[in-house]
């Protein structure tokens, strides 16, 4: 296991203030490590990777890592990512968003990016809350859970991010957690190499804004919960049905080869240029 941490330090911008801003035990730090290991394992040069982040605790990731990075506006990260991919399809574009970022304010961009199958990787850090702004409920907060804006429990149902992206047409859809770090490395690597729109939803604990209000005594309890309340989708008898015991399926839900929007666009360009000759 030697050199795992050293490798991560080689990708960090050491001129930024460390330790990073994430709270003690925040899952976002683990996801950052996983992302770095995945890019490294694929042998991608740092300059070929673009990290496009939205606003939120999750968005802070772009500050710390030495890829090409764009820290965009809340909810709109996918629009910037789409532009970058269309302009230079050779780049591996990874879009980091929180659940609020990707599903609440940015929900429309998410479904349309999936429908277009643009060759971008959406890394959705689902902590089931608006972490950065003080713990308001998001569209991924489970029904009945306590947040700053739902002190008696949320009355609304949460989005199932993976289901929604599948329904909207994403060609690679997976779900992992910050606890299952080795699996997460694999999911992120295959998502980055996937030709069309790829989504990796990551259950990433927010001990500060979500955990404390929902009977988790500390960060460790949240990871224990992830350990015992998730199930590998490949071990399910009926992978398309939600497990009755309420456990969260993790793994790859869809992986089909469909040309991305940028490929179809350049195909059209080649065709039209051929006609004009």
């Amino acid at each position: 296991m030697a050199d795992v941490t050293q490798l991560i330090h080689d990708y960090l911008r050491h001129n930024k203030k460390f330790p990073h801003v994430f709270c003690a035990g925040c899952g976002h730090g683990i996801v950052l490590g996983s992302l770095i290991r995945s890019v490294h394992a694929l042998g991608l040069p740092k300059d070929d990777v673009v990290l496009v982040a939205g606003i939120g605790c999750s968005g802070r990731m772009a500050v710390y890592v030495d890829f090409n990075t764009v820290h965009t506006t809340h909810g709109r990260a996918l629009t910037f990512a789409t532009g970058i991919k269309m302009a230079n399809p050779k780049l591996k574009v990874i879009c980091v968003m929180g659940d609020g970022d990707a599903l609440s304010i940015g929900g429309n961009h998410l479904i349309h990016a999936a429908r277009r199958n643009i060759g971008v990787t959406a890394l959705i850090l689902n902590n089931q809350i608006y972490g950065m702004t003080g713990g308001q409920c998001s569209s991924a907060t489970p029904q009945g859970d306590i947040s700053m804006t739902t002190p008696f429990g949320s009355l609304e149902k949460a989005f199932d991010i993976a289901d929604m992206c599948k329904a909207a047409g994403a060609s690679y859809v997976a779900r992992g957690t910050s606890f299952h770090a080795i699996q997460l490395d694999r999911l992120i690597s295959s998502a980055i190499m996937h030709p069309g729109f790829s989504v990796v939803e990551v259950f990433s604990p927010c001990p500060t804004q979500y955990g404390r209000k929902n009977k988790f005594r500390n960060a460790v309890d949240m990871y224990k919960w992830l350990k015992s309340n998730t199930v590998k989708v490949e071990t399910l008898k009926e992978p398309d049905r939600k497990p009755e015991d309420g456990r969260i399926p993790i793994g790859v839900f869809r992986d089909v080869e469909e040309p991305g929007l940028e490929e179809r666009y350049f195909e059209l360009q080649r065709k039209l240029m051929g006609q004009n000759r």
């Binding site: 991560i8 003690a24 730090g29 770090a181």
Partner: peptide, 11 residues
């Protein structure tokens, strides 16, 4: 090493 959110531990 894989789970330290702060990259503060090395083996």
């Amino acid at each position: 090493e894989l789970h330290c959110p702060d990259f503060a531990i090395a083996i």
